[in-house]
Computed example of a mutant assay.
Amino acid sequence: MTDTPLSDEARHAVKMAKKKAARDRMMEKKEGEKGLIIVHTGAGKGKSSSGFGMILRCIAHEMPCAVVQFIKGAWDTGERRLIEGRFSGLCQFHAMGEGFTWETQDKARDIAMARKGWEKAMDLIRDPEIRMVLLDEINIALRYDYLDIAEVVAFLETEKPPMTHVVLTGRNAREELIGIADLVTEMTMVKHPFRSGIKGQPGVEF
């Protein structure tokens, strides 16, 4: 007597049951927790957006968090309006930069502002009550040597509290930073409206 062929629905159910069993076995081994060093880099859009998404998750979980912006500090962004206007009790927001280096055209001032931002970042990261610190566009400051990469890496390795998450965004992340990170995502640009003459728009870019 031959077996009756399974229907598409039954085959799908069997396949998903096997996948769930394998997933459950894998998750049984994942018990550890730690504060992560997270890097978002690459030429594609979404690095800061992803970082701010994590900040909003922290806010939703009532986890104290903080943002230090190294480059876009002069911009009136939607995320800054939202956090400062509605969630300042849970999330500190420090806009330290004054714009991209080609806008300021003052290297000494850019270096001074980057240093000021890093000093604030270290204070926030050291605070054990703060669960996540977003260092937005710090990779740009590191790329131009406005900050010492060795100092930043050493601080994250030795002084970051064990359960504090630190998110670092911006293009061209330094290899030293990638080397110590727990999670690295590279955003790849496939298509961008800027190349077709479309300017940055509220809700999409800022």
Rank of each mutant, 00 (worst) to 15 (best):
E9I: 05
R81D: 07
V133F: 07
K18D: 13
G170V: 07
F87L: 06
L142Y: 02
A173G: 13
D182N: 13
R109G: 03
I140V: 15
E159K: 07
G97E: 13
K34H: 14
R57T: 09
M54L: 15
R115G: 14
V14Y: 01
A66Q: 02
I111M: 06
T188D: 09
F100T: 06
D148V: 11
L56K: 04
F52A: 01
L156M: 12
T41K: 00
E129P: 00
I149Y: 02
K199V: 10
M63G: 02
M122W: 00
M132C: 13
E98Y: 12
A141S: 15
E33P: 00
A74D: 05
G117K: 00
F100Q: 02
L56M: 15
P64C: 07
M189A: 11
L183A: 06
R195I: 05
T158E: 13
A43C: 09
T101C: 11
I37A: 02
H94T: 07
V68F: 02
F194E: 03
L183S: 10
E31Y: 05
R143Q: 13
R195F: 15
A173S: 15
G200I: 02
E159D: 10
H61W: 11
T158K: 09
L168N: 00
L135Y: 00
G44M: 04
K19H: 05
R80C: 06
C91K: 02
R115C: 11
K19G: 00
G97W: 15
I130L: 08
S7E: 03
L82V: 12
I198D: 00
I140F: 13
R195G: 10
K107W: 12
E98F: 14
M96D: 00
G197K: 10
D136K: 09
G44V: 03
A112Y: 10
Q69W: 09
K18F: 07
R174Y: 04
L147K: 03
E129D: 13
I125M: 08
A150P: 03
Y144Q: 09
T101N: 06
G99N: 11
E33T: 09
V190S: 14
G97Q: 14
V14N: 02
D123F: 01
E205F: 11
G44H: 01
E84M: 12
I37T: 10
G89C: 14
F100K: 06
S50C: 14
R195V: 03
E62Q: 09
A108K: 11
K116F: 08
A121E: 00
A17D: 09
E137M: 11
L82K: 05
D123P: 01
N172H: 10
R174C: 02
G46Y: 12
L56T: 10
A13M: 15
A22I: 14
M122D: 00
G51A: 08
D127M: 08
N172A: 11
G117E: 01
S88A: 12
A13S: 15
R195T: 07
R131H: 14
F93K: 01
P128K: 12
K160S: 08
K19A: 08
M189F: 02
K30Q: 14
A66P: 03
R11V: 13
A74G: 03
V184K: 10
G117W: 02
D127F: 04
M26D: 07
K45Q: 15
S48D: 06
F87V: 03
G46H: 06
C58Y: 05
